[in-house]
């Protein structure tokens, strides 16, 4: 608690750096006021822990989270977050946090959970815990509608596959397709392999199904479709989960139960159907 107080004070002092017009004495007054305020707020925070604060990326990440013109956070993840809170029987507020500071914010108890499209990785597991995944945009293989590829290694025999370089999708293509396919061509940029797919220089491309949505909706992408979702947890990782402080083991359990609940009672599907035309949970 003292920690939060001091952090508030420090941030207050830092913010005063800009106010050069203030005299030395005024500055001191500000600091004293800040200390007083910090004490009050600090006590408030510790005595009432009614609200669960969900941290989300403050930068827009549509369709998951973005700020609407009226200033509210909207998006799939905002709705899922609300549904999870309801399932847990908690009241929640959404706190926008800059992405690079979101784990420090969690550790400093400025937020209680990260519900911000954070992929579960071993690296992050060293610092924080994760709930079970609540979504995992699957990788997908996209090819011409007329093609009979179905994502199996046999179906890409003699074909040229395009992937973006140094992605998990490249790893997947090399692991599952390279031995059967004519070749796996690597591109610097996601849009470049789509262009070559349209031009017919590659027969299929492997990428993130969500990222393909825009391309498939465009004129150029009309004749193409997602042939199959590709799953390989060893390559793609488990997906996106809620990031939670290591000591809050109880909260992890609550999130897991809530995820299961909204998956079972249809809330999850109802929300997802508004945003995606495929299964974002990614079984």
């Amino acid at each position: 608690m003292a920690g939060t107080g001091w952090q508030r004070l420090i941030s207050r002092i830092n913010s005063n750096d800009n106010e050069v017009i203030l005299g030395e004495r005024d500055n001191m007054k500000h600091i004293i006021k800040s200390v007083a305020l910090a004490a009050v707020f600090g006590m408030g925070a510790s005595s009432v822990m009614a609200e669960l604060r969900l941290g989300m990326d403050s930068a827009p990440y549509p369709p998951f989270s973005e700020t609407s013109s009226s200033g509210d956070m909207i998006g799939w993840e905002v709705e899922i977050g609300a549904a999870l809170c309801e399932a847990m029987g908690e009241t929640c507020t959404v706190v926008p946090v800059a992405w690079d500071g979101i784990i420090p914010a969690l550790l400093a108890k400025k937020i209680d959970a990260i519900v911000g499209s954070m992929s579960i990785t071993e690296e992050r597991m060293k610092t924080i815990s994760f709930s079970n995944k609540y979504y995992n945009t699957p990788a997908a293989i996209v090819a011409a509608k007329s093609s009979d590829m179905d994502g199996t290694p046999e179906s890409v025999k003699g074909k040229v596959i395009g992937v973006q370089v140094s992605t998990t999708h490249q790893n997947y293509a090399q692991e599952h397709y390279e031995s059967m396919a004519d070749s796996v061509k690597t591109y610097q940029d996601f849009n470049e392999h789509n262009q070559d797919l349209v031009a017919g220089r590659v027969d299929a491309v492997v990428g993130d199904s969500l990222a393909f949505a825009d391309f498939l909706a465009s004129d150029a992408g009309q004749d193409f479709e997602i042939k199959a979702s590709l799953n390989d947890e060893k390559i793609f990782g488990p997906g996106v989960g809620a990031g939670i402080r290591k000591e809050d083991t109880e909260l992890v359990e609550k999130f897991n139960a809530a995820i299961q609940k909204i998956r079972e009672d249809g809330t999850y599907e109802a929300i997802s159907a508004k945003y995606f035309d495929f299964d974002i949970y990614g079984d």
Partner: peptide, 13 residues
């Protein structure tokens, strides 16, 4: 990429 974009328009190419 420019010429490549024209390929789909050429039938039988």
């Amino acid at each position: 990429y420019g010429l490549g974009a024209l390929f789909p328009m050429v039938p039988g190419i």
